[in-house]
């Protein structure tokens, strides 16, 4: 092992890691937001709208992320969508994650007992208040473990962005390997960074879960 190369490549690796976190965080947030919108559409929109959304879900879930990125990045300009690598990567991650997040929200919503929704209707609450005050908070709680889990899966999908030259961690690691032939060290750095990221997310997730379910667990 030869760790001295890290002195030279450390800054670019750190920058790559920064980009990885950025892509992951924004891709997750936007993907969740889009997923939430899709889940709400599927619950409330007219039949024909839900069919269109369903086709979107099937297409995105039925194709590899890599292919979606290629289509977006190299095919986009053909229809006037010219994006730099980073925004293209972010948009790709958002789209890729959205149907999975939508599915997670959908089952979270389904876990909210009908009776609690009916109780709100019975006192005359509007559907939008019901969504904001009852469906979302309770649905989110049941969805939380799956949301955290899929966010962790998404961390690993960010490496695919290197293929469209997003300068994230894998991209930097590959550059370093190619220039120094220090494959082992480079990939150890990659593993270490990802382990740290995943560990952090799951710990934060567990804390969050413990905090917001505190009042919801029946005393036995």
């Amino acid at each position: 092992m030869e760790w001295s190369v890290l002195q030279q490549y450390g800054p670019s690796l750190l920058k790559g890691f920064g980009n990885t976190i950025l892509c992951w965080a924004l891709g997750t947030v936007f993907g969740m937001a889009l997923g939430l919108v899709i889940a709400l559409i599927q619950r409330y929109a007219p039949r024909w709208v839900t069919w269109i959304v369903q086709i979107y879900i099937e297409v995105i879930r039925g194709t590899p992320f890599l292919v979606q990125l290629f289509v977006l990045y190299y095919g986009g300009p053909l229809v006037g969508l010219r994006l730099d690598a980073l925004p293209a990567g972010l948009l790709g991650l958002t789209i890729y994650g959205s149907p999975y997040f939508a599915e997670i929200f959908r089952s979270g919503f389904r876990a909210v007992p009908d009776g609690q929704i009916e109780a709100a209707r019975a006192i005359g609450m509007s559907e939008s208040d019901i969504v904001r005050r009852i469906l979302l908070p309770l649905g989110l709680v049941s969805a939380l473990p799956a949301l955290v889990n899929f966010s962790i899966i998404l961390t690993k999908e960010t490496v695919i962005l290197s293929i469209i030259t997003v300068p994230e961690l894998l991209y930097q690691v590959q550059r370093m390997s190619a220039e120094t032939f220090r494959y082992v060290e480079a990939n150890l750095v990659l593993a270490l960074f990802f382990w740290g990221l995943v560990e952090t997310i799951s710990r934060v997730g567990l804390r969050l879960e413990a905090r917001i379910t505190k009042h919801l667990i029946e005393r036995t």
Binding site: Q116, E118, A119, I123, R133, I134, L138, V141, H215
Partner: peptide, 17 residues
Amino acid sequence: MRRSIGMVFQQFNLWPH
């Protein structure tokens, strides 16, 4: 109209949060 009609359910249906 529902504002002036109260309803109580078998399963209580309180909002747990």
